[in-house]
């Protein structure tokens, strides 16, 4: 009984169950299937169907996971073995780590910090380092190019993404995610500063290599980029990592722009968490849908979008926030 109680302690429940590991895993299973289903529908076909047909093959991902588990993971002879094997683990771990600082209700969080937004944003920047390392350790030209591309992308989306997030913090006069969410009981951030919202959405997909920014692993150019040499379950890990990262960023995005758990009928952590999860899920699904619409940009075009469009836009959105504050729009709960 005590163990069950312990499980529901926020500092255990949040990282391990929701919105942490278990929820991330569930989302992973559903979203990969859904991505294939969405693409299939737009493309005049059915997509995965035969693994549990009554529900349209919903457990296809489990079948794939089993296949990955039993597939032989091959380590190239020329690869840097330690780095080759460690990077997927770090990549996945670091993609999911920021979740610990995400609150799921006004009163339910693993820990509350004055700067939780900064903590989350800072932690999300760690994962790409390992993608670059992965490209290097594979000792494959395509992997190397993929790693370098990831590196270029990181420097072009990181700063505008931070600025977009900060512009919302300025607006709410807080860096605490709980306060930010609570400030949106009335108007959501997306209405107050739509520019920052659009910008951040774009950068979020860019940072997780969603179409049209699926550049580091562009199949027709560099096979699978940094992941070229990976097989078996370690490939499963790296493939999951970018979805998990998108999920975490979507949670943050929901809190920053989509009111977090608001509107909240009753102050129950479960209801609040469900609200937040649905919003994040829709954002991830939108990212999956874009695959069916867009081809991919070239790396130089993506970089110039980062610096020439997203960066000025993020500066403008900071200015908008400052103007709103000076104009006396007071939304901050104090």
């Amino acid at each position: 009984m005590d163990i069950l109680k312990l499980l529901f302690e926020p500092y255990i429940f949040i990282p391990l169950v929701f919105p942490g590991l278990v929820a991330a895993f569930l989302l992973l299973l559903i979203i990969i299937w859904l991505e294939r289903k969405i693409a299939a529908k737009v493309q005049l076909r059915y997509g995965p169907l035969y693994v549990f047909k009554p529900l349209g093959g919903v457990i296809q991902t489990i079948a794939d996971l089993l296949r990955y588990l039993f597939q032989e993971p091959i380590v190239p002879r020329e690869a840097d073995k330690l780095a080759f094997l460690m990077t997927p683990v770090f990549l996945f771990g670091l993609a999911y780590l920021p979740v610990v600082a995400v609150p799921i209700s006004p009163t339910y969080y693993a820990f509350r910090s004055d700067v939780s937004l900064l903590i989350v944003m800072a932690l999300t920047t760690l994962a790409p380092i390992f993608t670059v390392l992965m490209g290097w350790s594979s000792n494959n030209k395509f992997s190397l190019i993929g790693g370098v591309r990831e590196g270029y992308l990181v420097i072009s989306y990181e700063i505008p993404m931070f600025l977009s997030a900060i512009s919302m913090a300025i607006l709410y006069k807080s860096l605490d995610l709980v306060e930010i969410a609570e400030a949106q009981k009335g108007l959501w951030g997306v209405i107050l500063n739509p520019l920052a919202a659009i910008n951040m959405l774009l950068l979020m997909y860019m940072s997780t290599s969603k179409f049209p920014f699926e550049i580091p692993e562009a199949e027709s150019e560099i096979v699978a980029g940094p992941y070229t040499e990976y097989s078996g379950i370690i490939y499963g890990l790296v493939m999951g990592a970018s979805y998990v990262k998108l999920y975490v960023l979507s949670l943050v995005y929901s809190i920053l722009f989509l009111g977090g758990w608001n509107p909240l009928p009753i102050n129950d952590p479960m209801v609040a968490g469900a609200m937040l999860f649905v919003k994040a899920f829709l954002l991830v699904a939108l990212g999956a849908f874009l695959r069916a619409v867009y081809p991919r940009f070239r790396i130089d075009q993506a970089i110039s979008i980062g610096w020439k469009i997203a960066f000025p836009l993020s500066l403008i959105s900071v200015v908008i926030s400052l103007l709103l504050i000076m104009g006396g729009v007071s939304l901050v709960v104090k």
């Binding site: 529908k41 737009v42 493309q43 076909r45 849908f289 619409v293 867009y294």
Partner: peptide
């Protein structure tokens, strides 16, 4: 970002949505 390009983005996404909810399927 020019206006016409934004319109084209919107058209592409809307066409995608159209097929997502109302497209035929060609599979045998």
């Amino acid at each position: 970002m020019s206006l016409s390009r934004t319109v084209r983005h919107a058209k592409a996404i809307l066409t995608g949505f159209k097929y997502l909810f109302a497209g035929p399927r060609l599979t045998l």
